[in-house]
Structures are given as structure tokens and as C-alpha cells.
Design a protein around this nucleic acid. Sequence first.
DNA 1: TAAGATTGAGGTTTCAATCTTA
DNA 2: TAAGATTGAAACCTCAATCTTA
Lengths: 147, 147
Amino acid sequence: VDDDELITQWGLLVEAFMAAGRVLEEDLQRSDQLPMVWFEVLLRLERTPGRRLPMTQLAHDVMLTSGGFTKLADRLAEAGFVKRVPCGEDRRVTWMELTPAGVKVAQRSKRHHAHALRTLISAHITEADLRSVGSAMRSLRDGLAAS
Amino acid sequence: VDDDELITQWGLLVEAFMAAGRVLEEDLQRSDQLPMVWFEVLLRLERTPGRRLPMTQLAHDVMLTSGGFTKLADRLAEAGFVKRVPCGEDRRVTWMELTPAGVKVAQRSKRHHAHALRTLISAHITEADLRSVGSAMRSLRDGLAAS
DNA sequence: TAAGATTGAGGTTTCAATCTTA
DNA sequence: TAAGATTGAAACCTCAATCTTA
């Protein structure tokens, strides 16, 4: 595989991935008026016992800087989906906690998003391919996190 | 595969891709002081006979709006890597054309980027995994392009 | 000293409106 | 009427500096 071929192959992956991301984001916008990054935050909170997580951890998980996440938190709180809760044990920490409205929209949009994803994938990717993609990406992610 | 599992698998893919993209962008920034989107534009021009393409086509290829691409073109021209050339046959069209300096930086950064890509991939992904990811994403892209 | 969170400044993108040419 | 390109306003992000707590 020469340089040009390698770059082209990777470019195809990036292109496919971004196009898919755009389709999924538009779908989420249509069904729930939710930007993808909002969904990602709400989803992580909804999955967590107590439905709250430290701001810094969430910021890292959705790949935002702490400054960027502070402003995202402002918008999510403004929309009524989350609230800030000070942490008793370590007073530097602020929890982000899902409100009842946030729980509701998280669960509803989860159904919509899963449906969109299923449609997208089943139309174009086999289940076996999806599993191997998952494992490959998991090892890539873990490798990058370690380095 | 239930809803949550499906969303999780896709989430891993998104996470891995973004982390890889970040590593590659940092590398390109270090070696050539070039944002990834600059590289993508220069690469496409360098590969084209005549080394020029219509603005609108480039905007579409790198997934920017026409407004966004106009400003990117301004920055690229300011840096001396491209120049705008009016199209004779259709006077609505502006070509973006690579300057000699642009050709030089495109070829140099192509070598650096290929090297970074090779390192990243060989360190974290097996050849077999890479092939299955590639085939899955290609069929996804082709399917999206068709619809 | 260092970590969590916030702020303001600066940069890049989208969106909607506009201008020119087909 | 429609397509290519540009513009200004608004949205969202990063970065560096700051404040508070550990």
C-alpha cells in the first residue's frame, strides 16, 4: 500500500463516517430538536445510577475542553434538561444531574436514535461487519487512550 | 442486538474515529502547521490535472457550506497556497488553483500524513480489522451517496 | 502545587440575505 | 428561476487567565 493509496483509503472512511454522522444528526434534530452532543450528554447521564456525573468527566467523555463544556452545561440547564449540583465531598466538583424533563427527552430520543441507527446500518452494513468494526474501534480507542 | 447495545457500539466507533482524527490533526499541525481541512483542500487540488477545481465542488467535497468555504479560501489565499481564477466559460464560477508554494506544501505534508497514518494504524489495528472496517464504511458511504 | 470550574477573547462554522451570471 | 459566490450575524468551540478548593 503506497502513500497515496493509504491516504485515500483513510479518506474514504472519514467521508463515510462524517456523512453517516450528518444523517444521524439531522434525524435527531427532526425528531427531538436535539443536537448530537446534547444527546450524548443526556444519554451518559441517563445510564448512570443517580443520573449525575462530575462536569469534568462528562467533558472528557464527549471530547470537549472544560471551558467548552461549561457553556454547553449552561445551554442544557437553560433548556431545563439538567441542573448543577455541588458535590459535598469535594467542593471543587460540580455534578451535572438530569432533571425529570431530561430523563424524559433522553429516553425518547434514545428510541428515535436507535431506530435511525438501525435503519442506516441494516440498509448498508451486515451485523457481522458491525461487530468487527466495533472490536477494531475499541482496540484503537483503548490504544489511543493509553498513549 | 438491542437499542442500548446498538447505540453503544456506534458510540465506540464515533469515539475512536474522533480520537484518531485528533491525533492525526495534531501531527499535521506539528509537522506542517496545517489544519486538517487545509490539507484536504490542498490534497484534492494537487491530485487534479491543472491543479484547480471550482469552489463549489471543493466545498462539497470537504463538507463545508459555500459561505464557510469562501472564508476558508480567503485564509488559504492569504497564506499564499492558492489563488482564485475566474472561469471563462461560466462566469458564475471561480476556480481555486494551487500556487507553486501550495504544490510544495501539499506534497510535503502528504508524506508526513501518510507516515503518521501508517504509524497509527499499525500500532493499534490489525490488518484484518482494518479491512472489515474499510469494507463496512465503504458500503455505508456508497449507500448514503445513492439515497 | 494541582485540580475543577468559569470567563472573555479569538477563530471557524452555519444560516439567511444579497449580488451576479446562466 | 436557479446556481455560484460573498457577506454579516449568530452559534459554538478552543485557549489562556482566573478563582476556589484540595
